[in-house]
Write a protein that binds this DNA or RNA. Structure first.
Lengths: 198, 198
DNA sequence: TAAATTACAGAACGATCGTTCTGGTGTCAA
DNA sequence: TTGACACCAGAACGATCGTTCTGTAATTTA
Protein backbone atom coordinates (compact mmCIF):
# COMPACT_ATOMS: atom_id res chain seq x y z
CA UNK A 1 0.00 0.00 0.00
CA UNK A 2 1.35 3.40 -0.95
CA UNK A 3 0.40 5.11 2.28
CA UNK A 4 2.67 8.06 2.84
CA UNK A 5 4.12 8.77 6.23
CA UNK A 6 1.64 11.56 6.74
CA UNK A 7 1.56 11.91 10.52
CA UNK A 8 3.96 14.65 11.61
CA UNK A 9 4.46 12.88 14.92
CA UNK A 10 2.81 13.61 18.22
CA UNK A 11 1.70 17.27 18.30
CA UNK A 12 -1.02 16.67 15.72
CA UNK A 13 -2.38 13.82 17.82
CA UNK A 14 -2.51 15.97 20.91
CA UNK A 15 -4.29 18.77 19.11
CA UNK A 16 -6.92 16.42 17.76
CA UNK A 17 -7.46 15.04 21.24
CA UNK A 18 -7.74 18.53 22.70
CA UNK A 19 -10.23 19.55 20.07
CA UNK A 20 -12.23 16.40 20.71
CA UNK A 21 -12.14 17.14 24.42
CA UNK A 22 -13.20 20.72 23.83
CA UNK A 23 -16.26 19.42 22.04
CA UNK A 24 -17.21 16.50 24.26
CA UNK A 25 -15.49 17.20 27.60
CA UNK A 26 -14.43 13.60 27.77
CA UNK A 27 -11.46 11.46 26.80
CA UNK A 28 -12.61 8.88 24.25
CA UNK A 29 -11.87 5.19 24.23
CA UNK A 30 -8.87 3.71 22.46
CA UNK A 31 -10.91 2.63 19.46
CA UNK A 32 -12.38 6.10 19.06
CA UNK A 33 -8.90 7.54 19.49
CA UNK A 34 -7.76 5.25 16.70
CA UNK A 35 -10.26 6.63 14.20
CA UNK A 36 -9.67 10.15 15.52
CA UNK A 37 -5.96 9.82 14.84
CA UNK A 38 -6.30 7.84 11.64
CA UNK A 39 -4.70 4.75 13.13
CA UNK A 40 -6.16 1.30 12.84
CA UNK A 41 -4.21 -0.46 15.56
CA UNK A 42 -5.15 -0.15 19.20
CA UNK A 43 -1.68 -1.25 20.13
CA UNK A 44 -0.23 1.88 18.62
CA UNK A 45 -2.87 4.01 20.32
CA UNK A 46 -1.78 2.41 23.56
CA UNK A 47 1.81 3.36 22.89
CA UNK A 48 0.94 6.96 22.02
CA UNK A 49 -1.20 7.27 25.14
CA UNK A 50 1.74 6.01 27.16
CA UNK A 51 3.93 8.76 25.75
CA UNK A 52 1.39 11.47 26.40
CA UNK A 53 1.06 10.14 29.90
CA UNK A 54 4.82 10.30 30.34
CA UNK A 55 4.82 13.88 29.08
CA UNK A 56 2.08 14.87 31.52
CA UNK A 57 -0.71 15.43 29.03
CA UNK A 58 -2.73 12.42 30.10
CA UNK A 59 -3.27 10.75 33.42
CA UNK A 60 -5.35 8.08 35.12
CA UNK A 61 -8.06 8.25 37.72
CA UNK A 62 -7.71 6.02 40.80
CA UNK A 63 -10.07 3.69 38.96
CA UNK A 64 -7.69 3.49 36.01
CA UNK A 65 -9.79 5.54 33.66
CA UNK A 66 -7.94 7.79 31.25
CA UNK A 67 -8.21 11.46 32.07
CA UNK A 68 -6.54 14.74 31.08
CA UNK A 69 -3.18 15.28 32.71
CA UNK A 70 -1.79 18.37 34.37
CA UNK A 71 -0.46 19.83 31.12
CA UNK A 72 -3.50 18.97 29.04
CA UNK A 73 -5.24 22.29 29.54
CA UNK A 74 -2.07 24.23 29.41
CA UNK A 75 -2.86 27.22 27.31
CA UNK A 76 0.29 28.96 26.36
CA UNK A 77 0.77 32.17 28.22
CA UNK A 78 2.95 33.67 25.56
CA UNK A 79 5.95 35.47 26.94
CA UNK A 80 6.50 39.09 26.15
CA UNK A 81 9.97 38.53 24.83
CA UNK A 82 10.15 36.47 21.70
CA UNK A 83 13.23 34.50 20.94
CA UNK A 84 14.43 35.39 17.47
CA UNK A 85 14.10 32.77 14.81
CA UNK A 86 11.29 30.84 16.39
CA UNK A 87 8.58 30.24 13.83
CA UNK A 88 5.87 30.13 16.48
CA UNK A 89 6.64 32.14 19.59
CA UNK A 90 3.70 30.67 21.48
CA UNK A 91 5.27 27.24 21.25
CA UNK A 92 8.44 28.44 22.89
CA UNK A 93 9.59 27.04 26.15
CA UNK A 94 7.77 27.65 29.37
CA UNK A 95 4.10 27.40 30.04
CA UNK A 96 1.72 28.65 32.62
CA UNK A 97 -1.86 28.72 33.66
CA UNK A 98 -4.40 26.02 33.22
CA UNK A 99 -7.96 26.89 32.40
CA UNK A 100 -9.31 30.40 32.44
CA UNK A 101 -12.05 29.18 34.75
CA UNK A 102 -9.48 28.22 37.32
CA UNK A 103 -7.74 31.55 36.84
CA UNK A 104 -10.89 33.49 37.69
CA UNK A 105 -13.00 31.28 39.90
CA UNK A 106 -11.92 30.33 43.39
CA UNK A 107 -15.21 29.26 44.93
CA UNK A 108 -17.43 27.84 42.21
CA UNK A 109 -20.52 27.55 44.39
CA UNK A 110 -20.39 31.23 45.31
CA UNK A 111 -19.40 32.59 41.94
CA UNK A 112 -21.74 33.83 39.27
CA UNK A 113 -21.60 36.10 36.29
CA UNK A 114 -23.27 39.43 35.71
CA UNK A 115 -23.42 41.16 32.37
CA UNK A 116 -22.54 44.83 32.48
CA UNK A 117 -25.05 47.32 31.15
CA UNK A 118 -23.98 50.80 30.24
CA UNK A 119 -20.79 52.82 30.40
CA UNK A 120 -20.84 53.93 34.01
CA UNK A 121 -17.63 52.06 34.87
CA UNK A 122 -15.73 52.78 31.70
CA UNK A 123 -12.80 54.44 33.47
CA UNK A 124 -12.23 51.17 35.32
CA UNK A 125 -11.97 49.37 32.01
CA UNK A 126 -15.41 47.84 32.34
CA UNK A 127 -17.39 48.11 29.14
CA UNK A 128 -20.97 47.59 28.14
CA UNK A 129 -21.54 43.87 27.54
CA UNK A 130 -18.62 42.65 29.61
CA UNK A 131 -19.16 39.82 32.05
CA UNK A 132 -18.26 40.47 35.66
CA UNK A 133 -17.13 37.50 37.70
CA UNK A 134 -18.81 37.98 41.07
CA UNK A 135 -18.02 36.31 44.33
CA UNK A 136 -21.25 36.46 46.24
CA UNK A 137 -20.93 37.87 49.73
CA UNK A 138 -23.11 40.24 51.75
CA UNK A 139 -20.51 42.87 52.52
CA UNK A 140 -17.40 44.43 51.06
CA UNK A 141 -14.68 46.94 51.79
CA UNK A 142 -14.52 50.54 50.67
CA UNK A 143 -12.63 50.82 47.40
CA UNK A 144 -13.70 47.46 46.06
CA UNK A 145 -15.83 47.14 42.98
CA UNK A 146 -19.10 45.62 44.09
CA UNK A 147 -22.22 44.34 42.44
CA UNK A 148 -25.16 45.82 44.33
CA UNK A 149 -28.87 45.51 43.93
CA UNK A 150 -30.54 48.87 43.48
CA UNK A 151 -34.20 49.14 42.49
CA UNK A 152 -34.28 45.42 41.71
CA UNK A 153 -31.44 45.74 39.24
CA UNK A 154 -27.78 44.80 39.36
CA UNK A 155 -25.37 47.69 39.45
CA UNK A 156 -21.59 47.53 39.24
CA UNK A 157 -19.89 50.37 41.11
CA UNK A 158 -17.08 51.29 43.44
CA UNK A 159 -18.06 51.03 47.09
CA UNK A 160 -17.33 54.16 49.08
CA UNK A 161 -18.44 55.77 52.32
CA UNK A 162 -19.88 59.25 52.83
CA UNK A 163 -20.69 60.54 56.30
CA UNK A 164 -21.14 57.11 57.75
CA UNK A 165 -23.29 55.63 54.99
CA UNK A 166 -22.23 53.59 52.03
CA UNK A 167 -22.51 55.00 48.52
CA UNK A 168 -21.87 53.62 45.05
CA UNK A 169 -19.49 55.59 42.88
CA UNK A 170 -19.32 55.14 39.12
CA UNK A 171 -16.07 55.31 37.19
CA UNK A 172 -17.41 57.85 34.74
CA UNK A 173 -17.85 61.53 35.45
CA UNK A 174 -21.05 61.62 33.39
CA UNK A 175 -22.81 59.40 35.90
CA UNK A 176 -24.04 60.37 39.36
CA UNK A 177 -23.08 58.87 42.71
CA UNK A 178 -25.80 56.55 43.95
CA UNK A 179 -26.91 57.14 47.51
CA UNK A 180 -29.27 54.32 48.47
CA UNK A 181 -32.32 55.36 50.46
CA UNK A 182 -32.45 52.36 52.74
CA UNK A 183 -29.94 49.66 53.38
CA UNK A 184 -27.42 49.02 50.63
CA UNK A 185 -27.88 45.49 49.38
CA UNK A 186 -24.60 44.03 48.19
CA UNK A 187 -24.75 41.01 45.95
CA UNK A 188 -21.03 40.35 45.83
CA UNK A 189 -17.65 41.74 44.96
CA UNK A 190 -15.98 41.72 41.58
CA UNK A 191 -13.36 39.03 41.24
CA UNK A 192 -12.68 39.33 37.54
CA UNK A 193 -13.82 40.37 34.13
CA UNK A 194 -14.42 38.55 30.89
CA UNK A 195 -14.91 40.10 27.49
CA UNK A 196 -15.52 38.35 24.20
CA UNK A 197 -14.70 40.34 21.10
CA UNK A 198 -15.60 38.03 18.24
CA UNK B 1 -31.00 -3.77 57.97
CA UNK B 2 -31.59 -0.41 59.57
CA UNK B 3 -30.40 1.65 56.63
CA UNK B 4 -32.12 4.98 56.65
CA UNK B 5 -33.32 6.57 53.48
CA UNK B 6 -30.39 8.93 53.54
CA UNK B 7 -30.21 10.07 49.93
CA UNK B 8 -32.09 13.36 49.53
CA UNK B 9 -32.83 12.51 45.92
CA UNK B 10 -31.04 13.75 42.85
CA UNK B 11 -29.29 17.06 43.66
CA UNK B 12 -26.79 15.41 45.95
CA UNK B 13 -25.92 12.94 43.23
CA UNK B 14 -25.34 15.72 40.74
CA UNK B 15 -23.10 17.63 43.12
CA UNK B 16 -20.99 14.59 43.80
CA UNK B 17 -20.63 14.01 40.10
CA UNK B 18 -19.68 17.64 39.51
CA UNK B 19 -17.10 17.47 42.26
CA UNK B 20 -15.69 14.29 40.79
CA UNK B 21 -15.58 15.90 37.37
CA UNK B 22 -13.92 19.02 38.77
CA UNK B 23 -11.17 16.83 40.14
CA UNK B 24 -10.70 14.40 37.29
CA UNK B 25 -12.21 16.16 34.26
CA UNK B 26 -13.88 12.93 33.27
CA UNK B 27 -17.21 11.18 33.76
CA UNK B 28 -16.58 7.90 35.59
CA UNK B 29 -17.98 4.51 34.76
CA UNK B 30 -21.24 3.20 36.21
CA UNK B 31 -19.49 1.10 38.80
CA UNK B 32 -17.44 4.06 40.00
CA UNK B 33 -20.59 6.16 39.99
CA UNK B 34 -22.19 3.50 42.17
CA UNK B 35 -19.53 3.79 44.89
CA UNK B 36 -19.46 7.57 44.46
CA UNK B 37 -23.19 7.74 45.10
CA UNK B 38 -23.27 5.04 47.73
CA UNK B 39 -25.36 2.74 45.56
CA UNK B 40 -24.57 -0.89 45.03
CA UNK B 41 -26.72 -1.60 42.00
CA UNK B 42 -25.64 -0.61 38.53
CA UNK B 43 -29.23 -0.84 37.40
CA UNK B 44 -30.14 2.06 39.64
CA UNK B 45 -27.13 4.04 38.45
CA UNK B 46 -28.40 3.47 34.96
CA UNK B 47 -31.80 4.86 35.91
CA UNK B 48 -30.32 7.93 37.59
CA UNK B 49 -28.09 8.61 34.62
CA UNK B 50 -31.16 8.41 32.40
CA UNK B 51 -32.86 11.08 34.48
CA UNK B 52 -29.86 13.39 34.43
CA UNK B 53 -29.71 12.89 30.72
CA UNK B 54 -33.38 13.82 30.40
CA UNK B 55 -32.75 16.94 32.48
CA UNK B 56 -29.83 17.98 30.28
CA UNK B 57 -27.03 17.42 32.77
CA UNK B 58 -25.58 14.44 30.99
CA UNK B 59 -25.26 13.51 27.34
CA UNK B 60 -23.67 11.00 25.02
CA UNK B 61 -20.93 11.26 22.46
CA UNK B 62 -21.61 9.91 18.96
CA UNK B 63 -19.73 6.83 20.16
CA UNK B 64 -22.17 6.39 23.04
CA UNK B 65 -19.78 7.42 25.74
CA UNK B 66 -21.26 9.34 28.65
CA UNK B 67 -20.31 13.00 28.71
CA UNK B 68 -21.37 16.19 30.49
CA UNK B 69 -24.55 17.68 29.12
CA UNK B 70 -25.34 21.27 28.23
CA UNK B 71 -26.43 22.19 31.76
CA UNK B 72 -23.61 20.37 33.51
CA UNK B 73 -21.29 23.39 33.69
CA UNK B 74 -24.06 25.87 34.05
CA UNK B 75 -22.74 28.85 35.92
CA UNK B 76 -25.49 31.28 36.63
CA UNK B 77 -25.49 34.31 34.44
CA UNK B 78 -27.43 36.54 36.80
CA UNK B 79 -30.12 38.52 35.09
CA UNK B 80 -30.16 42.28 35.32
CA UNK B 81 -33.66 42.40 36.68
CA UNK B 82 -34.09 40.90 40.09
CA UNK B 83 -37.42 39.48 41.13
CA UNK B 84 -38.40 40.98 44.43
CA UNK B 85 -38.38 38.71 47.42
CA UNK B 86 -35.88 36.25 46.10
CA UNK B 87 -33.26 35.60 48.75
CA UNK B 88 -30.61 34.80 46.16
CA UNK B 89 -31.12 36.46 42.80
CA UNK B 90 -28.45 34.37 41.14
CA UNK B 91 -30.44 31.25 41.80
CA UNK B 92 -33.47 32.63 40.06
CA UNK B 93 -34.88 30.97 37.03
CA UNK B 94 -33.09 30.93 33.75
CA UNK B 95 -29.54 29.96 33.08
CA UNK B 96 -27.01 30.63 30.38
CA UNK B 97 -23.47 30.12 29.39
CA UNK B 98 -21.35 27.14 30.11
CA UNK B 99 -17.73 27.55 31.05
CA UNK B 100 -15.83 30.76 30.59
CA UNK B 101 -13.32 28.83 28.52
CA UNK B 102 -16.00 27.89 26.05
CA UNK B 103 -17.26 31.45 26.02
CA UNK B 104 -13.87 32.73 24.93
CA UNK B 105 -12.14 29.92 23.12
CA UNK B 106 -13.39 28.52 19.85
CA UNK B 107 -10.30 26.75 18.54
CA UNK B 108 -8.21 25.54 21.46
CA UNK B 109 -5.25 24.48 19.39
CA UNK B 110 -4.89 27.94 17.87
CA UNK B 111 -5.63 29.98 20.96
CA UNK B 112 -3.11 31.33 23.40
CA UNK B 113 -2.90 34.05 25.99
CA UNK B 114 -0.79 37.17 26.07
CA UNK B 115 -0.37 39.35 29.10
CA UNK B 116 -0.74 43.04 28.39
CA UNK B 117 2.09 45.35 29.34
CA UNK B 118 1.51 49.04 29.64
CA UNK B 119 -1.37 51.41 29.14
CA UNK B 120 -1.21 51.90 25.39
CA UNK B 121 -4.67 50.37 24.81
CA UNK B 122 -6.40 51.85 27.82
CA UNK B 123 -9.11 53.57 25.78
CA UNK B 124 -10.13 50.16 24.48
CA UNK B 125 -10.62 48.95 28.02
CA UNK B 126 -7.40 46.95 27.97
CA UNK B 127 -5.37 47.48 31.10
CA UNK B 128 -1.86 46.63 32.23
CA UNK B 129 -1.80 43.02 33.41
CA UNK B 130 -4.89 41.88 31.54
CA UNK B 131 -4.76 38.66 29.60
CA UNK B 132 -5.61 38.84 25.92
CA UNK B 133 -7.15 35.75 24.34
CA UNK B 134 -5.48 35.46 20.96
CA UNK B 135 -6.52 33.39 18.01
CA UNK B 136 -3.34 32.77 16.13
CA UNK B 137 -3.52 33.64 12.44
CA UNK B 138 -1.07 35.32 10.08
CA UNK B 139 -3.31 38.13 8.89
CA UNK B 140 -6.15 40.32 10.06
CA UNK B 141 -8.53 43.02 8.92
CA UNK B 142 -8.19 46.75 9.44
CA UNK B 143 -9.97 47.79 12.61
CA UNK B 144 -9.33 44.58 14.48
CA UNK B 145 -7.23 44.48 17.59
CA UNK B 146 -4.20 42.38 16.77
CA UNK B 147 -1.25 40.99 18.62
CA UNK B 148 1.81 41.72 16.54
CA UNK B 149 5.47 40.99 16.99
CA UNK B 150 7.56 44.13 16.91
CA UNK B 151 11.24 44.06 17.87
CA UNK B 152 10.83 40.54 19.24
CA UNK B 153 8.10 41.63 21.62
CA UNK B 154 4.36 41.19 21.62
CA UNK B 155 2.35 44.33 21.05
CA UNK B 156 -1.40 44.71 21.26
CA UNK B 157 -2.73 47.40 18.95
CA UNK B 158 -5.42 48.30 16.48
CA UNK B 159 -4.55 47.32 12.93
CA UNK B 160 -4.88 50.15 10.44
CA UNK B 161 -3.64 51.07 7.00
CA UNK B 162 -1.73 54.18 5.95
CA UNK B 163 -0.81 54.78 2.32
CA UNK B 164 -0.85 51.13 1.45
CA UNK B 165 1.13 49.84 4.41
CA UNK B 166 -0.15 48.46 7.68
CA UNK B 167 0.37 50.37 10.89
CA UNK B 168 -0.39 49.68 14.53
CA UNK B 169 -2.46 52.26 16.35
CA UNK B 170 -2.65 52.46 20.14
CA UNK B 171 -5.82 53.39 21.98
CA UNK B 172 -4.11 56.08 24.01
CA UNK B 173 -3.17 59.52 22.73
CA UNK B 174 0.02 59.49 24.75
CA UNK B 175 1.45 56.66 22.65
CA UNK B 176 2.74 56.89 19.09
CA UNK B 177 1.54 55.02 16.03
CA UNK B 178 3.90 52.18 15.19
CA UNK B 179 5.03 52.03 11.59
CA UNK B 180 6.96 48.81 11.09
CA UNK B 181 10.08 49.08 9.01
CA UNK B 182 9.78 45.75 7.23
CA UNK B 183 6.93 43.36 7.02
CA UNK B 184 4.39 43.53 9.81
CA UNK B 185 4.38 40.22 11.62
CA UNK B 186 0.96 39.43 13.00
CA UNK B 187 0.75 36.81 15.72
CA UNK B 188 -3.03 36.69 15.89
CA UNK B 189 -6.18 38.65 16.51
CA UNK B 190 -7.78 39.41 19.84
CA UNK B 191 -10.74 37.20 20.60
CA UNK B 192 -11.34 38.18 24.17
CA UNK B 193 -10.01 39.56 27.40
CA UNK B 194 -9.62 38.22 30.90
CA UNK B 195 -8.90 40.22 34.03
CA UNK B 196 -8.49 38.94 37.53
CA UNK B 197 -9.03 41.49 40.29
CA UNK B 198 -8.45 39.60 43.50
C1' DT C 1 -56.05 -0.34 54.41
C1' DA C 2 -55.19 -1.79 49.79
C1' DA C 3 -52.72 -0.67 45.78
C1' DA C 4 -49.39 1.65 43.28
C1' DT C 5 -45.18 3.78 43.00
C1' DT C 6 -40.47 4.69 44.24
C1' DA C 7 -35.86 3.35 45.42
C1' DC C 8 -32.98 0.28 45.49
C1' DA C 9 -30.23 -4.94 45.34
C1' DG C 10 -28.43 -8.71 42.72
C1' DA C 11 -27.35 -11.51 38.91
C1' DA C 12 -26.87 -12.66 33.96
C1' DC C 13 -25.32 -11.36 29.48
C1' DG C 14 -23.27 -9.82 25.15
C1' DA C 15 -20.50 -5.94 23.85
C1' DT C 16 -16.63 -3.39 24.33
C1' DC C 17 -12.65 -2.23 26.81
C1' DG C 18 -7.38 -1.96 27.12
C1' DT C 19 -3.31 -5.09 27.10
C1' DT C 20 -0.12 -7.81 24.86
C1' DC C 21 2.09 -10.33 21.41
C1' DT C 22 3.62 -11.24 16.67
C1' DG C 23 4.76 -9.36 12.43
C1' DG C 24 5.44 -6.07 8.54
C1' DT C 25 7.00 -1.96 6.55
C1' DG C 26 9.94 2.32 5.95
C1' DT C 27 14.22 5.24 7.26
C1' DC C 28 18.62 6.09 8.47
C1' DA C 29 23.25 5.40 10.21
C1' DA C 30 27.21 2.36 10.00
C1' DT D 1 24.15 -4.04 2.70
C1' DT D 2 22.81 -4.57 6.86
C1' DG D 3 21.17 -3.99 11.13
C1' DA D 4 18.65 -1.00 14.28
C1' DC D 5 14.89 1.50 15.19
C1' DA D 6 10.44 3.99 14.78
C1' DC D 7 5.82 3.46 13.16
C1' DC D 8 2.03 0.86 12.45
C1' DA D 9 -1.49 -3.52 11.43
C1' DG D 10 -3.91 -7.40 13.19
C1' DA D 11 -5.50 -10.77 16.22
C1' DA D 12 -6.20 -12.96 20.79
C1' DC D 13 -7.60 -12.50 25.46
C1' DG D 14 -9.43 -11.68 30.08
C1' DA D 15 -11.47 -7.80 32.35
C1' DT D 16 -14.82 -4.56 32.57
C1' DC D 17 -18.47 -2.16 30.50
C1' DG D 18 -23.61 -0.85 30.36
C1' DT D 19 -28.14 -3.13 29.66
C1' DT D 20 -31.82 -5.74 31.23
C1' DC D 21 -34.40 -8.65 34.02
C1' DT D 22 -36.30 -10.23 38.50
C1' DG D 23 -37.11 -9.29 43.27
C1' DT D 24 -38.03 -6.60 47.62
C1' DA D 25 -38.71 -3.16 51.14
C1' DA D 26 -40.32 1.39 52.06
C1' DT D 27 -43.21 5.13 50.92
C1' DT D 28 -47.02 7.40 48.89
C1' DT D 29 -51.63 7.57 47.02
C1' DA D 30 -56.59 6.29 46.86
Amino acid sequence: MALKNHQPLDPAYLEKLQDYYAEHKVIPSYSVLATLWGISAKSWVSECVRRFEEAGFLDWTPDRQLKPGARFFERRLAHDTVQAGLPNPALADGYDLVTIDDYLIRVPSKTSLVRVKGESMIDAGIHDGDLIVVEQQPNANVGEIVVAIVDNEFTVKYLDREKGTFVLKPANKAFPVIRPRGRLEIFGVMAGLVRSTR
